[in-house]
Nucleic acid binder design. Structure first.
Length: 309
DNA sequence: CATCTGTACGGGATACTCGG
DNA sequence: CCGAGTATCCCGTACAGATG
């Protein structure tokens, strides 16, 4: 009798069931929220962006960074930073239910670059805090701009009590800490380690080219039965040895030029060597070869030099 | 555990701006 | 001028974390 194989899931429950559909994190949270009447234009825009990207951009729909699998969190942060804040500009934002009804203002985006707006929830969010605010660091209320969303529009532009200014706080605030992390990651391409890696890649490529050239030269010399080295390989020596000559720039350059010229003149040579010379074809080949050699001359040395290097 | 503090929300009132 | 919408001020309440 076959014993049924057990998997690890039989013994442990997943710690984070919401993050299970790794392939498409966009699908979570959408049904939980209470959608308001959407501006059709914004809805279409949002749908297009959802299809075009890996992570949900609408702050009212997207999954919290910490809810994502650990190995996807950094990727998600880089994605959201590269895309920038989700600032949807509508002709008219929906009014809220307050006695003095108010609505979101698109010019707030100019005043607060970190600000995001979700047409889905009609609430405002903070991108740096969404990406970098952590529970142990954050204080009560800070999830208003990350999880819940802010919609008390009356409190915006309320002098010193402006909700957005209060959220930003002083230099040591959680928001500014998040902004610092945001800028650090954004500028990460210029970090010294990244530059060094690039530089190393260049050195490795050059070393590989040198090695490949040397090996090819040795193979060619072996095939031709030529001696590799000379008795005197000093700069003043008249016979430095084949290997020293063959890897020189001049030698490679002349070879390349010869190859190019011979390719051009090949057709003409074959035509002229035929026993039954077709004079019209031969004249045609001569004029073609003249044109091609003229092109080679007019193009200058740059293409050949680049090929040699 | 009680108190303090910081953050956010809600309501009311009034003044201001702007377009019709 | 009027109405709609926005800005500002004030007061009270609620909640969670920090502190003694």
């Amino acid at each position: 009798m076959k014993r049924k194989l057990k998997t690890i899931d039989c013994f442990f429950q997943r710690d984070n069931p919401r993050a299970t559909p790794i392939e498409n994190p966009n699908l979570t949270n959408v049904q939980d929220s209470d959608p308001i009447n959407l501006h059709t234009e914004a809805a279409e825009l949002n749908q297009q962006e959802t299809l075009a990207t890996t992570f949900e951009r609408d702050p009212g729909k997207r999954v919290q960074i910490l809810m994502l699998p650990f190995d996807q969190q950094d990727e998600a942060r880089r994605f959201y930073i590269s895309e920038g804040p989700y600032q949807v500009i509508l002709d008219e934002y929906p009014l809220n239910d307050a006695s003095h009804a108010r609505r979101f203002q698109s010019n707030w985006f100019k005043q607060f670059s970190w600000l995001e707006y979700s047409p889905h929830t009609d609430r405002a969010y903070c991108l740096p805090c969404f990406l970098f605010s952590k529970k142990p660091i954050g204080k009560y209320g800070l999830d208003t701009f990350t999880v819940k969303g802010f919609n008390n529009w009356k409190k915006v532009n309320e002098g010193k009590e402006c909700a957005f200014l209060k959220h930003m706080g002083n230099s040591g605030s959680a928001h500014n800490y998040s902004v610092g992390c945001f800028n650090n990651l954004k500028n990460s391409m210029t970090h010294i380690d990244k530059v060094m890696v690039k530089e190393n890649e260049k050195l490795v490529a050059e070393a590989r080219l040198r090695l490949t050239t040397t090996i090819n030269s040795i193979r060619w010399l072996t095939f031709q039965g030529c001696p590799f080295r000379g008795h005197d390989e000093s700069q003043n020596s008249l016979n430095q040895g084949a290997l020293q000559i063959i890897v020189k720039f001049d030698f490679v350059f002349i070879l390349l030029m010869m190859e190019k010229i011979m390719k051009i003149t090949d057709v003409l040579c074959q035509t002229l060597q035929k026993k039954s010379i077709d004079i019209l074809n031969a004249l045609d080949s001569v004029s073609n070869t003249k044109v091609l050699l003229g092109n080679l001359r007019n193009d200058g040395w740059d293409p050949v030099l680049q090929e040699v290097c």
